[in-house]
Design a protein around this nucleic acid. Structure first.
Lengths: 363, 363
DNA sequence: CCTGTTTACTCAAACGATTTACTATATCGT
DNA sequence: ACGATATAGTAAATCGTTTGAGTAAACAGG
């Protein structure tokens, strides 16, 4: 009676603490140790009979028990958490899949991601890293929205880290980036195979690895087919629609204009479309165009749809976390530089050159 | 000597445990209690002199101490973490700013976000929520990439939750959505002010709140200016470029076509551009067009640039977390339905009607 | 009956903080 | 000189798990 009253008092007064392992143990009439053992699948190893396991499971169900991950983590000295630092990915349209890839890889390993977008602000970044370390993240993914070189905060050296879509001078970091060069090779070869020999290149004026490597791929592809690279066919502008428009205009106004263009990115390619249209040219009849990035909207709005090269964002995100988990588990190596292929997405902006001298030779 | 040896052994054998409060206390020659007091700014209240505070801080610096958030959280029974469940936001281009807004609000309150993209998979969602609850999240933001009705898992009722860009039949949940209706009113009034009286509407065939509310706003704006709503001027299609193209085509082929179009979204508006161009019409001379969503790339590629209505993604994300934090702190109310205004972004796709009868009256 | 092994658990010490209650010394008013 | 008050701390309990070491009971073998 007295007990009963006390219980009732307790029930109504308590701020309703969520059930813990002790509650489960009480109900199942075992010790908390046993509960823990059962819940962690170590019951078999310790010779705990099926009947007891059942009792525990029922009790778990009955009280609605949910293990407290902080307590477990504290004891186990793990957090099952990885930190994802990015400059601006969440706000950048086509980089979102990186997060998805990272998340999927983490998910499969029962880890979760804590993501902070620093907006490229150093102090935010440093505080974010500090917060994550306090939360005992097991590793970092350091991601940028486009392939570039970064200066890394020194703390990243303390725990496993991988660079996603960026690189550092410090080669002890693992990094994963698009294989820009082979992507550009693919695009260029696609044009070469269509019969083009006089191919222009629309280059960005940004001094980033992507710029160098794509141009390099362009040159390599030409060379492998025995076509001379002509520097006059490279026009430079900002890597947006307007830059593409201007750069393409300058090439199309040449005495002998190119019959095809490889563009640093889709936006520039879209600018090239406009430049061609303004001159009464029809794509791909009068000009073939290949882009880079495979931005959904660009290919939706270019008419005909733009042939382009896809950046492997999802795959990079996935690879980054997979490698990171390897490092954390001690089974994977750090310091490797991984490149992921950029597949060509062939659509309708590429055709044979209008006056195709090679078609007589090669067809 | 023996001690020394043992210490050395320890030093070289130990897997290098990160420094904890005890280490700091030892160096500063105080108790761990004091260290905690100092680090939590409670030193003043407890009359701990400046000199001791200094000693502790120096020791913290010296050993590179970083408080373990899991241990603190366990003791304090808080995680300073909020869960962010979304269907597909990370992969949807224009919804990214929601995450940024949510993050910024969380950041200001020293909370961190754990984000999971469920890809609209129920089982992933349920597991994600379970994981988050185990990690003691203090509340949930449940977000969708476009404004729609959702069926919520029952567990969300257990702890504070807010719906971001979606709504539930259960009105005990706080929700924040775009004020679609007033956005459509703004766009329509913009056209009316330019002199248009015969305005078409390109509607999506998706049965979502955004569809109803935008159309409703369109009607309201007409009515408030005394213009009769003509159902024949509403054409329906899928909410993509192609749907816009087709729907606009059908309206433009009417015996007396509209002089302006309000479109469910920017993609349909872009389709309308193409339909107009195909008919030799020039925008905005022959047709004015207003969109909805303000997708960056669309406005970049439409020529002239598209006048549209912006969705307040960032603001919604920010508001959602702010309200959630209020609920968590017990100071904020739940169950409120908040709408955020959608500002008009006037660009160049709207002009006066070609043959403007009202310009004689009103100008 | 005694010893050794297996079975089926339990005990209690961690993990690393926070916080309440307590103590020891110094200072002050009377 | 005495009790009261302020000063400057500390000890120990606690949060909810995990886990290595331990143990009681049952059983087998001799």
């Amino acid at each position: 009676m007295k007990d009963n009253m006390k219980d009732n008092m307790k029930d109504s007064t308590k701020p309703r603490r969520p059930p813990n392992a002790r509650d489960v143990a009480g109900l199942a009439e075992v010790s908390v140790s046993t509960v823990s053992l059962v819940l962690n699948g170590k019951a078999a190893l310790r010779g705990i009979p099926e009947a007891t396991i059942q009792r525990v499971m029922e009790a778990v169900e009955r009280v609605g028990y949910r293990p407290n991950a902080m307590a477990a983590g504290l004891r186990r000295q793990t957090s099952d958490t990885i930190g994802f630092i990015s400059d601006l990915i969440a706000t950048t349209p086509h980089a979102g899949p990186m997060i998805q890839g990272a998340q999927d890889a983490a998910w499969e390993a029962e880890k979760i991601l804590i993501i902070v977008n620093t907006g490229d602000d150093r102090s935010v970044q440093d505080r974010a890293i500090e917060m994550m370390l306090q939360r005992q993240v097991e590793g970092f993914v350091y991601a940028t929205m486009y392939h570039r070189f970064v200066e890394l905060p020194a703390v990243l050296r303390e725990i496993p880290s991988v660079l996603l879509d960026c690189r550092s001078e410090d080669t002890t970091f693992t990094s994963v980036t698009p294989d820009e060069q082979s992507g550009a090779v693919a695009a260029t070869e696609h044009l070469l195979s269509a019969g083009h020999r006089r191919i222009g290149y629309l280059q960005t004026n940004a001094r980033i690895p992507a710029a160098m490597e794509r141009l390099e791929g362009f040159k390599m592809a030409l060379q492998s087919r025995g076509v001379d690279f002509d520097p006059h066919l490279v026009a430079t502008g900002i890597d947006e629609f307007s830059g593409g428009f201007e750069a393409a205009s300058s090439l199309l106004d040449l005495p002998t204009p190119p019959s095809a263009l490889v563009c640093f990115n889709d936006r520039m390619a879209a600018g090239a479309f406009r430049a061609a249209h303004r001159r009464g040219m029809v794509i791909p009849r009068d000009l073939s165009v290949a882009g880079f990035d495979n931005e959904e909207l660009v290919s939706l709005f270019t008419d005909p749809a733009l042939t382009t090269v896809q950046l492997p964002h999802y795959e990079m995100g996935y690879w980054a976390v997979t490698n990171l988990l390897g490092q954390i588990a001690g089974t994977g190596a750090a310091g490797i530089r991984h490149r992921i292929a950029c597949p060509l997405v062939a659509r309708d902006s590429v055709g044979p050159p209008k006056d195709d001298p090679s078609s007589r030779d090669e067809n």
